[in-house]
Design a protein around this nucleic acid. Sequence first.
DNA 1: ATCGTCATTTGT
DNA 2: CAAATGACGATC
Length: 664
Amino acid sequence: MIGVTERRPADQLPIARVLVDVPLPHLDRPFDYRVRQEHAGDAAPGCRVKVRFAGQLVQGYVLDRVETTDHPGRLAYLERVVSPEPVLSPDLASMARAVADRYAGTMADVLRLAVPPRHARVEAEPSEPGQRPPARGVPAEWRRYERGAALVKALASGVKARAVWQALPGEDWPRRLAELAATVSAAGRSALLVVPDHRDLARLHAACLDLMPEDGVVALSADLGPARRYRRWLRARRGAAHVVVGTRAAMFAPLHQPGLFVVWDDGDDLHAEPRAPYPHVRDVLVLRAHQTGASFVAGGFARTAEAQLLVDSGWAHEVVASREVVRAHAPRVSGTGDDFELARDPAARTARLPAVAFEAARAALDAGAPVLVQVPRRGYVPALACGHCRTPARCRRCAGPLSLPAGSSDEARPPSCRWCGAPEPGFRCAACGSARLRAQVVGAGRTAEELGRAFPGTTVRTSGGDEVLASVPPGPQLVVATPGAEPVVEGGYGAALLLDGWALLGRPDLRAAEETLRRWMAAAAMVRPAEQGGRVIVGADSALRTVQALIRWDPAGHAQRELAERAELGFPPARRMASVQGTPHAVARVVDEVQLPPSAEVLGPVPVQVPRAAGNEEHERVLIRVPRSDGKALAAALARLQAQRTARKEPDAVRIQLDPLEVI
DNA sequence: ATCGTCATTTGT
DNA sequence: CAAATGACGATC
């Protein structure tokens, strides 16, 4: 009885188009619901609702309110308007749709990453509008880059600009990015800046607060509690905050009047979302900039092949310093591959450091400067010891530690020296003469100990794993750090020793060279310019292309060659690639049934190790690649197939990933 | 996924 | 001949 009066349809726009939160690909489309008169005001586009769907109450979002429906059957009513807060703006909805389509995933999956859970109390709080900073001119530092001033001016005047920016060695990049954000904010628009990890975020946030009123900036990261997360997210959505800085999860943050999207260090694998549909920060921000007409900047010391493609395709301009300016800022870099001579100093001999490395470190310490030693992540590259007597296996030329190139399970690749890179095909233990080798993990701690002995009386600090130092005080000291955990030091390091170069470079990975250069440059960028005595010693042969790129500080040239090589091999980003993974039967069926564009090539299947605990089934993977122009068709074909499979209730799920990070 | 429908099976 | 189990299929 009561129901009859309540269920009068709304006079205006009585139909709501609703995206229901169900995980099934074949239901990834809007469903129409009738809106009751009492919901007419609240059920605005973007708000969260509860609807009855296949008999169940499920969460959904109102995408739109319309007059009529195409649905031939009876419409159900919206059950409940959860809140009138329009969390899913039309902008955000079309972004989620586009991301889902790009990755052959569902919009519901994207929204689960993009819209944080509701917090009713927080939602009830008003979001006080934040202040914008005053407009100011082009900072002098941006003038050191060709097109740097033009970039800032474009942002200041609201003209669309798209840039791939290679920061100068020693650059205070958080400050530079904060300047871009402040420029956009002063111009009345909003900016989103995404960095790989929390340390970077802390630095960028601090730099932003230096230039802008605190209430105009929010920092978003995955480790916030639900209340703080939702509060900050709402500040961005409501336009109270104009600058959003964050880690990966922030790539979907809503912006009020989007003016700029920035990704810093897009080669860092933290920018790849590990949950379906596996979006990548750079690609999502490119897409958002494209959709909204906003500006875009991909910045870093190094340059990825993907960023290079943005330049080559003409979508973005490069913003780089001239060779002379680069030379004035870069440290002096040398390889060790052509200098196996051990240090004469007896203390250095005990630590078995190559002479150049020892001398560079000694000189920096004597000058009162800190020395950075980059060592691989623990367990990343296992060191080798004698299989008989456990004596550490040493290089016969420089006595550096031997290790196996990571990832090569086959015996084809000989062990090689982590310092000088020389291969050692015929190992004999110096102590007992055995030819057997066993793997043994040598972490940063052991390296630190050995170095401490080479430089007696010098402070040694380590940073890595769960004990990451954000910064160290200036002064002579050895700082042993894993890649990405290098502490900041005021005034820069006097020298850096980049050990394990060969091991990094030798990985059988498509991105090995690019990733190695990225890590080297991140560390080397913290070293003083050569004019001030800054030196970098890299434990690999100077004849190698990647070592040359570091020596010449030429990230763009390296990226160009990387991209050319990928084009030759037919790998991303030169081609669009999809990986389909699952049980052999399921993968075979997918390959059999999928309606691929004619240009598609199917590679495999090959068996893959699945580290997941319970499912100890054998899995296989195929790679499907197409020219970039057919990327959309490929994703669409795979999405259609997923929809078919779930509609038919096929038993084994397959995982579909577009442009997966690991393809070899 | 989940719910409902309809058919087929099973039990008395 | 009724309850019970199971296979499709649609989901506003």
